[in-house]
Simulated assay, not measured.
Amino acid sequence: MTMDEIAKLAGVSKSAVSIAINGKPGIGTETRERILKIAQEHGYAPKNREEDQDSPARSITFLVFANSGIVLEQYYQQPFFRELIHHIEVRSRMSGYSLLFSSVDMGSFERDIRNLAEEKQGDGIILLGTNLDKQHIEEILARLSTPLVVLDTCFETLPVHFVQINNVMGAYQAGSHLCELGHKNIGYIASNIRMRNFDDRKQGFIAALREHGLEIEEGNEFSIAPTILSSQESLKSQLTAYLQTGRPLPTAYYCECDYIAISAIKTLTELGFRVPDDVSVVGFDNISESVIVSPELTTVHVEKERMAQLAVDLLIQSIESEPAAKHKIMVDTRFIERLSSSSPAHASLTAK
Rank of each mutant, 00 (worst) to 15 (best):
2 T>G: 04
4 D>G: 08
6 I>F: 04
16 A>P: 01
21 I>K: 02
27 I>M: 00
30 E>D: 08
31 T>N: 03
34 R>H: 08
38 I>Q: 03
40 Q>I: 01
44 Y>R: 02
48 N>V: 00
50 E>A: 08
51 E>N: 10
51 E>A: 08
55 S>H: 15
59 S>E: 05
62 F>G: 00
65 F>H: 03
66 A>Q: 01
67 N>I: 06
69 G>P: 00
70 I>A: 01
72 L>K: 12
77 Q>W: 07
79 P>H: 07
82 R>Y: 14
85 I>K: 00
88 I>E: 03
88 I>L: 03
99 L>R: 06
107 G>D: 12
110 E>V: 02
113 I>D: 02
115 N>L: 12
118 E>A: 12
121 Q>S: 07
126 I>H: 06
127 L>K: 04
128 L>V: 07
129 G>S: 00
130 T>V: 09
131 N>G: 05
134 K>V: 10
138 E>P: 01
139 E>Y: 13
145 S>H: 12
145 S>L: 09
148 L>C: 01
153 T>A: 05
159 P>L: 09
159 P>E: 06
163 V>Y: 06
163 V>E: 08
170 G>K: 10
170 G>P: 04
177 H>M: 02
178 L>C: 00
179 C>F: 02
179 C>E: 09
179 C>G: 03
180 E>G: 01
184 K>D: 11
186 I>T: 01
190 A>D: 13
193 I>G: 03
195 M>S: 14
196 R>V: 09
199 D>M: 13
199 D>T: 13
200 D>V: 07
201 R>E: 06
203 Q>P: 08
203 Q>C: 14
205 F>M: 05
205 F>R: 01
208 A>D: 04
212 H>K: 15
214 L>R: 04
215 E>W: 12
225 A>P: 08
225 A>N: 14
228 I>G: 03
232 Q>V: 02
233 E>W: 05
246 G>C: 13
246 G>W: 14
248 P>Q: 10
251 T>F: 05
252 A>N: 04
261 A>F: 08
264 A>N: 04
265 I>F: 11
266 K>S: 05
278 D>E: 14
281 V>D: 01
288 S>P: 09
291 V>R: 13
291 V>K: 12
292 I>F: 14
294 S>V: 14
298 T>G: 06
299 T>D: 09
308 A>Y: 09
313 D>H: 14
314 L>D: 11
315 L>R: 06
317 Q>C: 12
321 S>F: 14
322 E>H: 15
326 K>H: 15
326 K>Y: 15
326 K>D: 15
330 M>N: 11
341 S>R: 10
343 S>Y: 06
343 S>H: 14
343 S>Q: 13
346 H>G: 04
349 L>F: 11
351 A>H: 15
